[in-house]
Simulated assay, not measured.
Amino acid sequence: MTEDAPITVLLVDDQPLLRMGFRLILEGEDDLHIVGEASDGAEAVKLVRNLTPDVVLMDVRMPVLDGIEATRAITAEGSPARIIILTTFDVDEYAFAGLQAGASAFLLKDVAPSELIQAVRVVASGDAVVAPRVTQRLLETYVRGAAAPAPAAQAPDPLLGDLTPRETEMLEAMAEGLSNAEIAHRYFLSEATVKTHVRRILTKLHLRDRVQAVVYAYETGLVVPSNPDY
């Protein structure tokens, strides 16, 4: 996607009426262009490969291949496409699985048209759509309940050693759910400096975006779930 080119979007849902609704909303914007539609995950994987969309709106429950596995396959192929998982509830096992699989965001299916349009634009720019504290609440809920070894028993990811002490602090703050402005306030930094740290963290850890950084912090045990009354 060049600066002047429209953002290309692939719609993936097994319900034609929903795809039609999303198309009508998005194609009303000059900077958004629907390049294709898929009715199942397997078709979505093929179309992403052939059409190279900037953004994929991905339903979860579909025949042949569900949206989670399709997301995993697309990210495993190294596609630069940003995937938005469409879910029914904000703290939802499918949303959590989607983030684990490599999605950049999740949205509720009944999202307002203006929010859908903004989400596509934000994700295409490389930023996160999910509000930081919503992401944290989602991870707190499902990481706490996962049957995984205790963080103390896990071998630390060697990539964490590539981070400077300041970058590690930034990653922990991101996982707490703090925005760039809140991190800047805590550490007496400018927002521009925080953004630079975030960019370096993503590069060093080979992560796609901020949401994936938060998932990484929990899954590696750098940050552990707080008490269940969070």
Rank of each mutant, 00 (worst) to 15 (best):
P113F: 03
E115I: 04
E115R: 11
E115N: 13
I117K: 02
Q118Y: 08
Q118F: 00
Q118C: 01
Q118M: 06
V120H: 00
V122G: 07
V123H: 01
V123I: 10
V123Y: 06
A124N: 00
S125E: 13
D127F: 10
A128T: 08
A128D: 08
V129L: 02
V130N: 12
V130R: 09
A131V: 07
R133V: 11
V134L: 06
Q136V: 13
R137W: 10
R137S: 09
R137P: 05
L139W: 04
E140G: 12
E140Q: 15
E140N: 11
E140K: 09
T141K: 07
T141N: 04
Y142N: 00
V143R: 00
V143F: 00
R144D: 02
R144M: 03
R144I: 03
G145Q: 05
A146C: 11
A148H: 15
A148D: 13
A148R: 08
A150W: 11
P151I: 06
A152W: 12
A153K: 05
P156E: 15
P156C: 09
D157R: 14
D157A: 13
L159S: 11
L160A: 06
L160V: 05
L160G: 02
L160D: 08
D162V: 04
L163G: 05
T164K: 02
R166W: 08
E167Q: 14
E167C: 09
E169I: 07
L171K: 04
E172W: 06
M174H: 07
M174P: 08
E176M: 14
E176A: 13
S179E: 15
S179A: 15
N180C: 14
A181P: 06
I183C: 07
A184I: 13
A184R: 08
F188H: 12
F188W: 11
L189A: 12
L189C: 08
S190G: 10
E191K: 09
A192H: 09
T193Y: 08
T193G: 06
V194G: 06
V194S: 09
K195N: 10
T196K: 12
T196F: 06
T196D: 04
H197N: 02
H197Y: 15
R200N: 07
I201V: 11
L202Q: 06
L202S: 06
T203K: 15
K204Q: 10
L205H: 00
H206K: 10
H206G: 03
H206C: 15
L207M: 10
D209E: 10
D209R: 02
V211P: 06
V211A: 08
V211K: 00
V214S: 08
V214N: 00
V214A: 05
V214T: 05
V215F: 08
V215D: 03
V215I: 04
Y216G: 10
A217Y: 01
A217W: 00
E219N: 14
G221W: 09
G221F: 01
V223R: 14
V224H: 01
S226F: 10
N227S: 14
D229C: 05
Y230F: 11
